[in-house]
Write a protein that binds this DNA or RNA. Sequence first.
DNA 1: ACCTATAATTTTGTATACAAAAGTCTATTG
DNA 2: CAATAGACTTTTGTATACAAAATTATAGGT
Lengths: 227, 227
Amino acid sequence: MVKQNNKSHSTTVHEVIKEIRKEILNGTLKEGERLIQDEWAQRLNVSRMPIREALTHLEMEGLVEIKPHKGAIVTPITQEDIEEIFNLRCMLEATVVEKSLPYLTEEDVTLLGEVLIEMETLKLTDETNDKYSKLNAKFHAILHKDCPWPRAKKFVDNLGISPIAPKLLEPYYEKTQQDHRRIYEAVLRRDPQELRLAMEYHLTRTKNNLLKVIQQMNDEKNKNESI
Amino acid sequence: MVKQNNKSHSTTVHEVIKEIRKEILNGTLKEGERLIQDEWAQRLNVSRMPIREALTHLEMEGLVEIKPHKGAIVTPITQEDIEEIFNLRCMLEATVVEKSLPYLTEEDVTLLGEVLIEMETLKLTDETNDKYSKLNAKFHAILHKDCPWPRAKKFVDNLGISPIAPKLLEPYYEKTQQDHRRIYEAVLRRDPQELRLAMEYHLTRTKNNLLKVIQQMNDEKNKNESI
DNA sequence: ACCTATAATTTTGTATACAAAAGTCTATTG
DNA sequence: CAATAGACTTTTGTATACAAAATTATAGGT
């Protein structure tokens, strides 16, 4: 294991979760791929027990599917899944940020602005892609920080997908920035209705763009296969 | 363990989950109460491992809270929790039933009608309470049966609380029946908008009644304590 | 008597060991 | 050669054993 640097997460299971989640989200593990407990145990230098527990956690997050006596596979994602995920996020995340708004401190808002600026000035390359993902996650995390509705927050977190999106959404970089700025300004004005609208718009547009990109990818693949 | 009658659920963990869940929902286990792994292991005649896994599952369902190195307690529920749970169910379950409607077969609808009738003719007593809970669960389950949005369905399932509600909501029995009938008739007419409205109304009313009942319980308690 | 430090106990976390199920391969038969 | 029964291998499920953390109890000092 990556040397149990237990500062925030005190158990092995958490480290394992982080590791496997990372590999799923950055695409190292392809969808449908099998996760064999013993392989991972050896790879991370732990016993199978923490792996098992990590897998059931990831199942809750929807990243893997577990069948009794058969094991875990990486959850495959279809267009209908994207449709579902973003429509749910539209409902839930809009609610979450609206509810959280009154609990945002001035420092939070300042930080949010800084993250926004940093994203805007970041030139997109292969190296900065990861950095951008992190900033984007941070941006959304700040908005959720002290949400008084923990279940809603958990649901939004579990809907995932966001971390893979940035890579695919490069062409719509400009658009995304505009959305983020609109969200930021709604927060600045402490305007819950506008914040909700801005978030809903952002997620709906992202969904449509993602679907478009994936459609194009599929078209490409089919063309090559039919040659 | 209760003699592994493995027909539907093939693993011990599932049995353990069912057992602990039952005890939480029927109130045997009070909120905040600690669940000690070894105690349960001995009680159910299994090792601690299935207990651990069951607990992490129940954590996902929101029935228990787990802190590293400290263990699991039964999740305490406040009025704000009820507010959250039912508002979320209002959004999510309305969506779920609307999406599921086209996939309901004629047999499903017939069955739904039978369950409805059975609930209507059931006289509420202490013994039938459990029966009623089951019928109520079945009623909702049929509506969700083949929901094309699995995440939304899972979220609704995980929001729980429904199984404790019937006991507390006895005074509003009539009202609940009317709601169910309205939902049933919307299904019969295959009218998604009306179905959504009926479900939203049902959940909002249930929320308000639950809050009222709990408020009364608290008033009672405070009165007794202050004597 | 009260607080603090430390020892003893309890409880959780992880590793290892064994049992059961699923999957794979091979050999035999039609 | 195809199909299938049965041995063999792999992989998951559960039990037991040990390590680490947290909790409780105890003893000593002020």
